[in-house]
Amino acid sequence: MNFIKTLIQNLVSGPSTVSYPFGPAWTPDNFRGRIDFKLASCTACRACEQVCAPGAIRFDKTPEGLRFMMWHNTCVFCGLCEHYCPTDAIRQTTDWHMAHPVKDEFGMAIRETIVYVNCTGCNAKTLSSAPNPVGVEPPFTPEEIEQQRNLCPACRKKALAERGAVS
């Protein structure tokens, strides 16, 4: 008579079908979904371009600066870019609602430019990227990051040495 127990259980718990197109869908917290890029944290180290297996991430030099491009339609969601990013500039969200009509195909990309600025120390043209935090003790404060952003690589080294940071 076990089937009666199962029958009652099924009647109480309802169908196991997820309600998705007509209701919300459950997503795991660590789901590897759409890539998100935060321009303010990018150090322009290009590690993500190096490790991206399908070549979805590309950096191009433009007159305005270094342009970051990422195609969602080429990404295979392996998560290597997030793993190797020294800051939290590139990370994976849990968003998987990416089905789109073909007319939107070329909008499925991230295009951001790290602009050129003139170094406040020596007035040379330099990229306004965030400083690399690896090995910096004590960690950068937000003010220091903004200060370093407007320095060229040589002036950054000088500022780090004056700070007494181990690099």
């Binding site: 998705y20 969601f77 089905a99 789109h100 073909v102 195909e105």
Partner: peptide
Amino acid sequence: LSKYIPVDVNVPGCAPRPQAIIEGIAQ
């Protein structure tokens, strides 16, 4: 594929989860 066949809906993912395929089919 769109070089050879007219494609109407794209469902990116490697592989897309079943809900994403349902979303694409609904479109």
